[in-house]
Every structure is written in C-alpha cells, then in structure tokens.
Design a protein around this nucleic acid. Structure first.
Length: 810
RNA sequence: GCCUGGGUGGCGAAAUUGGUAGACGCGCCAGACUCAAAAUCUGGUAGGGGCAACCCUGUGAGAGUUCGAGUCUCUCCCCAGGCACCA
C-alpha cells in the first residue's frame, strides 16, 4: 500500500469528480437508455423558480435529501432517473423584472445559468440531457396543449364569477393563493371582484382526490392538509318555500331542522332582490353597500359581533310549516354551499350569537341526558343527544334523526335530498399578466371561444416593451395589437386572441410528465417513455405546496388519465415532505441576518460537508436547526475518514470492527430509504470511531464498505477514496451495496442490566444466549445487587434475553 | 374552535417501539503537542450528594396500567404547522 501524505482538500476533489462525471456522462441517459432501462426508478424533486438571488439553502436541503435517495437506489442497482428543470414563468419573476427594470426574457436565462452552476457544484446527480424550462416555447407549447386537452374534455369553463383580485399584483388569484384573506405572494389584502375568468373544473374530482389519498404513500401531514382543503361534508340540501320560489340551503344537521327559526342569505345572494320588501329595501341596500366595502380580513375580525338586516320576507320551515323571517348577514358566505343557511340558534353557536343580537327565537331540538325539551339554552349545544320538540321524530338520536328527517322530507314533500358538499372550489387559471403562457383560445363573435389548432402551438407571447399590469382587469398582452387581432380558425372572420395567461401552477402541474420526453419536440408525452417511467417513484419537496402544486398535479394527472392520455391516475407513488430548515433557532430572514448562503458554505467546507451536515442536523422530515459551528462535526469526520483511508493497511477486518461494520450496514440500509438520514450518518460516525479506536491502524477492508454506505451523502469523497483504493470504475457503477450477515451481528458476550424492583443496581457481563438460571445466578452474584437483595425474599424474576434481569423482592 | 405534528442535557438530537434515558455531533472543561495561537489528538461532560464504592432526582404537569413507562391510557399546559363565521 502506498502511503500518501496529502490532506483532504474538498475543492480539488470535488472539481475533479464533477468534471469527470460530466466527461463520462455518468448521470446522463440517452433516449435509448431511457427506453431500455431494466429497473427504472424515477427520483423527482420539486424544480426551483430560478430567482436572481440563487439557490436558497432551503432548496439545497430539499435537493441533497432527494439526491441522497436517488444515489442510494442507484447503488442498490436501480436505473435512477433524476432530472432537474426550471419553473421560470410567473408573477415572482415578472415582479422582479419590473422592479429592476428589465425584461424577464433577458433575466431568466442568466438566473438559470447561475442555478445550473450551483446545482452542479452541490453534487446533484442530475440528468441534464432531460431538463425543462417552463418559459421555453418548446415546453409551454405543451402546457397550452394540456389546456386544450382539458378544454376538449369539457373540464375548462369561462364564466363570470366572484374572484380574488390582488390590488398589488393586479391580477386574479386562485383560492389556494389566498392565505387568510391576503395574497400569498405580496400579502396585500385580496378584494372580491366579479370578472369573467377561466376555470378548471377540479371540483368534479373532489371525491376522487380525497378518496385516493388512502391508497397513496404520502407524508401524513400532506394528506391531512389536502383532505382539509377538499373539506368534504355530508348532509342534505333542503328547500324552504319563500315567496314565489324556494331558498335552497345545505345543512350537515338535518336532525335540527325543527329548530330552524330564521334563515340567512349571503348579502351577495341572487335571491336577495326578489325577497326584499319595499319597506326594507333601503336598509338592505345600505347593508349590502357597507359589506361590499369591507374586505374578507375585516369580516373575519368582526366574527363575534354579528351584523345583518331583515329582508321583510318570510320562508316556510318545511318540517313544521312555521313562517320564519329571512335575513341577510355577512356571516353567511356566498362561496360555500348555496350561499344561504337555515339558522338553528339552539345548536349552532354562530346562529345563537346572531339570534341573541337580533332577539330571534331560540328553540331546543336536541336534549342531552338529563335535559328535557324545556331546559333553557345559554349557548348553542352542538353535541350528541336525542331529538325533542321535533314532532314524530322525538326520541331519535342525532345520527338516526339525520337520516329519518331527510328521508321524510324527500319522500313526502320533495323538499330535501342527501348531499355531499365540498369546500374545494374550481381552479381559476387565468391571470391578467404578461409572464406566462397565453391561453390558447381565440374569441370569435360568431363561433365563440375557439381553441387554437394544435398545429399552431405554441401561441408565443409577443415581445412587449411595456408589460406593466394595470387595474383594468385586462392583461398587458392586449397592448400587442398585431398579435391580438387574428382570424377565427373556424370561420376565418375577424377575431381576437384571449389575452390572459395561465396560472404558473399549470406549468408546474405537469412538468414531471414531460421530463422523460423532454427531447421529443413532436409530441408532449412519448407513450413508451411515459409508460416506462411514470408514475414517479419518489417525490420529495416542501409541504408548502400541499394544497397548491401537489393538488393541481394530482388533478391534472387524473384528468389526463380520463382523457386517455395517461394510463395511471396518481402521479407520485411516494411523496415525502421534508421539514423546515431554520437557522440559530429562528426562521431565516435577511433582517435577522441569519441567512445561510450555500455558495459560501461550499467555498469554505466543500459540497460533501454541506450535504452531510444538512442531513445530519435532524430528522429529514422534521427539519433542522443550522448552527454555523455544527458543520465542524461532519467536516472533521470527513478529514478523519480521509486520513484513515490514506493510512489503511491490507488485511482482514478485526472481529470487533467487523461486528460493528455489519451493524452499521444493517442500520444504514434500513434507514436511508426511510429518509432517516441523521441516524444513518450518526451510525457511520460511530463506526469510524470504532475503526480508529485507541489509535489503531485501519484496515482497507474495514473502510471499503463504509465508502459505499457514505456515497449517497458525500459522493465526491467516496468516489475519490474508492479510486485511490484502486478501482477504475465509478463507485456508483462498479461498487455493490454491502450486505450484512446476521450471524456477524451478535456479540459473544453481552452486558446484562440487573434491576432490583425495577431499579438498576448493577451490570454483569455474560456469554450471549445462556439460560435463565445462569443469568439469575450471575446477577445475584453481583456485589451491589446482592446488597439490595439481603434480608429480602425473591418473589419473581423477569429475564429479557441478553439484555436485562429484573429481580422482584418484598 | 377543528385537524396534524411536537415538548428529552448548555445546544441539534438518539432510544431496536414496553426493557440499561441522553447514541452521534456541537459547545464547554482538563490534558498532550506548540515560544505562542490555530489546527489536531486524548480524557471528561444530565442535575444533586459522597474521599470512594455508591445513593437520590430526572424525558412539559398531574394521575393510572405494569415487575418495569420517554414509549401505553386518561386529564391538563405550552410550542409549531394546516384549515377557519365552511352551515
């Protein structure tokens, strides 16, 4: 063995191997290789928006965790496809371009070049042969194609509807982009506007989007967030006769129908005009005007103080024929159910507050044990009980009553039917902005909205000097007159293009489908490649996209499945949300000065150390706290590893070391695919400590398997030391993942904990596997144990083989 | 309010799922090397008591089950995230 005297220099090692991998095409697939791969594994991570600032350490955290997974499976012999791309359309890029006064067309390519440099420098195993850039016409051509597929399938609709308008971004937003009444991007208070917009009918898929959650292997947090967002409620639709028509309401508590003492419509409800009496008109109009000036954020603040106005009209409670007044109030939302409710103040706290404020009758219709029909209510009672004051239904439980009342109303009065309601809204996909794929539709006075023929895709967005959005609700693309005016593809008459662009989440909603086909310009999705590689085997990303990207991606996949494009309906077999990376105990922010810059870390310690530290910080799915000093641990570890390999001598492993090795192999093999990186790394550190214990000289055979175990985390060092041990091929191609041998795991002697009455009193060393009597004999022979046994009677002994003895005395 | 996670040394965290609490790492303390510092190496490090062998206390709080509880059950407190006048 040659003795080398060099020190670990990450800069040199990493440059060398990055160049080498590129030269050899180590991570690249040819089209042919993609088609013939024997054991495909599609390892996906969320592609970044290429910001001007470069990769955020949070992105890096996501990527190195996902890359470790990909490299692990490659070492296990799979053909791992790990592509990367850029999500470069959208308001974020456009706003930044406006701020610095350039065109995103110029800005984005620079940012992408910088991101690519960083991604390569951090040692990701990306297949740069199969990349996507959502702003490239060769990509968004097919984004438009997806739009048209859904359009043809009847899943797209243009309609005038109350939509979320961000007065700062000057565009509409999807429901998912409004967080507590604020724009998720700029935190401006979102207004409600009535505008014609394009919608994807995601609500048609609500039941499937919810139901499939049970079958997919996803992080629990993510599934819960989606279920929450879809918001399924079982109940009934009930018609209350009112004036010449009826008011439809949705209720989850049909058992309380007898207690409905008034009704409330949302102020924007279309029936308000019809139901308002002349005497009440002035008051109703005043109230509606006042509500219109208040935004959603204010409406939420005033939750406790209920406001509202009587319309002057009455409706009939179909259960008991009573006339009940119809009010309007802003605590009823137009956007949920039918925008009208039956108010049951006895059993709904909001209705109770309203009834109290306006002196409306409160009737008990559910009694809990101990109450009777006349027990007064001091607050709404929403719990279980039996029905009272409900005629023939008295005595039924809540659950029985729900069914019975609906059945009765449905059969005898045609006034009700069981119904499931969802919180999920249709996805508003149109944006009145510049930096996105134009919606491929042409408006013709004769033919209506006509899809642009597939052969004419992409509809490229026209170059615009002035792409500043305005408050008109019309996209800046309207200013490109020559582009705007175009003949109708159907009848040839003068027509004009749709000027809205699509939501950025449409670009990112299908990119993973495109990667394998990225080199094919003639087709969106090559059928053979799609069948081979999709659905995605592993997807790792942040949970902030639980109800945005991940919901849309599932919807689009389901829709394309139903349209015959795909033969699967769930896009990601496994999804794992990584945790949040914080710094010094707090969220990273520029103002707090605790932002971690990956380029600086790499320059100082190298990519391997950064990767190792990021994954060692804490459980990957919980996140971790970056502490600047902590990185010294992994850095020191790699230095010791380097020295150990440099000084290693030939020879069989020492038996004690070999035992530790087999345990380490087992632990790493089990924990890496479960993303338990922090403990797997700890195990390898512990193992190296054993290898180097008491200054002993390591054997090469003790280190070679360790290099393979480490390769997913520190690919450059592993590759270099593997080569220095004389291997010509890359560790990722030539080395096989070590196997552990069960027979080599067990110690010959074990240390048994001896408890007396459950308290630890001593430890004894004993040969493994001896029988109980001998264990007890050894235990009682222990001096300290014997002292605790003196003068006592042994009543019971519990023996856990090779681990513990508990002597119960009295 | 509802739904998820969490709460363990000075800090980030482990704990084979009911069996020796604190692995691994940071920090800190002491020592070696050095004119010195850095780096590196060695040892120590939950708290309290004791010269020591040892003893007591200890996983957010309180109760329970058990030979034995960080782990299971019940009640409560706190932190983070999701949803939220959703009928």
């Amino acid at each position: 063995m040659t003795v080398r005297t060099d020190r670990y220099d990450p800069e040199i090692v990493e440059r060398k191997w990055q160049e080498e991998w590129e030269r050899r095409g180590t991570n690249l697939f040819t089209d042919d290789e993609l088609r013939t791969a024997e054991d495909p594994y599609y390892n996906l991570m969320m592609f970044p928006y290429p910001s001007a600032e470069g990769l955020h350490i949070g992105n890096v955290y996501a990527y190195v965790g996902a890359d470790a997974n990909g490299r692990y499976w490659r070492l296990r012999g799979k053909d791992v496809f790990e592509p990367m791309g850029f999500d470069a359309f959208g308001i974020h890029a456009e706003n930044y371009a406006l701020k610095v006064g350039t065109n995103p067309n110029e800005l984005i390519p620079q940012n992408i070049a910088n991101f690519t440099r960083q991604l390569k420098r951090f040692g990701g195993m990306y297949d740069w042969n199969h990349t996507v850039d959502t702003t490239d016409p060769s990509y968004y051509r097919w984004t438009q194609w997806v739009f048209l597929k859904l359009f043809e399938g009847g899943l797209v609709e243009r309609r005038e509807a109350p939509v979320n308008w961000c007065p700062s971004c000057l565009t509409v937003l999807a429901n998912e982009q409004v967080i507590a009444g604020l724009c998720e991007r700029c935190e401006a208070t979102v207004e409600q506007r009535r505008l014609p917009q394009w919608f994807f009918k995601i609500t048609r898929y609500a039941e499937r989007l919810l139901g499939n959650l049970e079958q997919i292997d996803w992080s629990d947090v993510t599934k819960k967030a989606q279920a929450n967002w879809i918001g399924r409620s079982e109940g009934a639709e009930v018609a209350f006769p009112a004036g010449a028509g009826v008011i439809e309401v949705f209720t989850t508590r049909p058992d309380t129908l007898f207690g409905a003492t008034y009704m409330v419509l949302a102020p924007e409800h279309p029936d308000v005009d019809r139901l308002t009496t002349p005497e009440q008109r002035a008051a109703v109009e005043a109230y509606r005007a006042e509500v219109a000036t208040r935004d959603l954020v204010e409406r939420q603040k005033e939750r406790k103080d209920k406001t509202g106005v009587f319309t002057g009209s009455f409706a009939v409670n179909p259960t008991n024929g009573q006339e009940i007044p119809v009010w309007i109030a802003d605590y009823v939302l137009m956007g949920y159910g039918s925008g009208a409710i039956m108010a049951v103040p006895g059993h709904d706290q909001r209705d109770f507050d309203f009834a109290t404020a306006f002196d409306l009758p409160i009737v008990r219709v559910i009694a809990r044990p101990g109450d009777d029909a006349s027990t007064p209510l001091t607050e709404a009672y929403a719990g279980d009980g039996v029905m009272v004051n409900s005629g023939r239904f008295d005595g039924l439980t809540v659950a029985e009553g729900k069914r019975a009342v609906v059945e009765w109303l449905a059969n005898d009065k045609s006034a009700a039917r069981a119904r499931v309601n969802f919180r999920l809204h249709d996805w508003c996909v149109s944006r009145q902005r510049y930096w996105g794929p134009p919606i491929p539709i042409i408006h013709c006075d004769t033919c209506g909205p006509v899809p642009v023929p597939e052969s004419e895709l992409p509809v490229e967005h026209p170059p615009l000097e002035d792409f500043q959005p305005d408050d008109s609700g019309v996209s800046p693309l309207r200013r490109a007159t020559e582009w705007y005016e175009t003949p109708c593809p159907r009848c040839g008459r003068d027509a004009h293009r749709e000027t809205d662009v699509t939501d950025n989440f449409l670009c990112s909603g299908w990119y993973f489908l495109r990667y394998p086909s990225a080199r094919h310009d003639d087709v969106a999705l090559d059928p053979e490649l799609t069948r081979k590689w999709l659905p995605v085997d592993s997807y790792i990303g942040g949970n902030e996209h639980a109800v945005l990207h991940l919901m849309y991606a599932r919807f689009l996949t389901m829709a394309l499945h139903d349209l015959g494009v795909l033969d699967f309906e769930e896009p990601f077999d496994r999804f794992r949300a990584h945790g949040l990376l914080i710094s010094g105990g707090r969220k990273m922010s520029k103002s707090k000065g605790n932002v971690v810059l990956p380029d600086k870390i790499v320059a100082r310690f190298g990519a391997d150390t950064m990767r190792l530290y990021l994954l060692f910080l804490g459980p990957y799915e919980h996140g971790g706290d970056w502490q600047d000093k902590g990185i010294q641990g992994p850095f020191g570890f790699l230095n010791r590893l380097w020295q150990s390999a440099r000084d290693a001598v030939d020879g069989a492993p020492d038996p004690d070391v070999e035992r530790a090795l087999h345990r380490t192999i087992r632990q790493v093999t089990e924990q890496v695919p479960a993303l338990q990186y922090n403990t797997a790394i700890a195990a390898m550190m512990e193992y190296l400590n054993v290898v180097r214990a008491d200054g002993r000289t390591p054997r090469r055979s003790e280190l070679e398997p360790l290099l393979v175990l480490l390769a997913p985390f520190v690919p450059h060092v592993a590759e270099e030391l593997h080569a220095r041990f004389g291997h010509a091929r890359s560790i990722f191609d030539g080395a096989s993942w070590p196997a552990w041998d069960e027979s080599k795991l067990a110690d010959e002697t074990v240390e048994i904990a001896v408890q007396v009455n459950g308290r630890l009193r001593g430890r004894v060393s004993i040969a493994a596997g001896v029988d109980e009597a001998d264990v007890i004999a050894a235990a009682t022979a222990n001096e300290n144990v014997a002292r605790h046994l003196a003068d006592k009677t042994l009543r019971k002994t519990i023996v856990v083989p090779d681990k513990l003895v508990n002597l119960v005395v009295g």
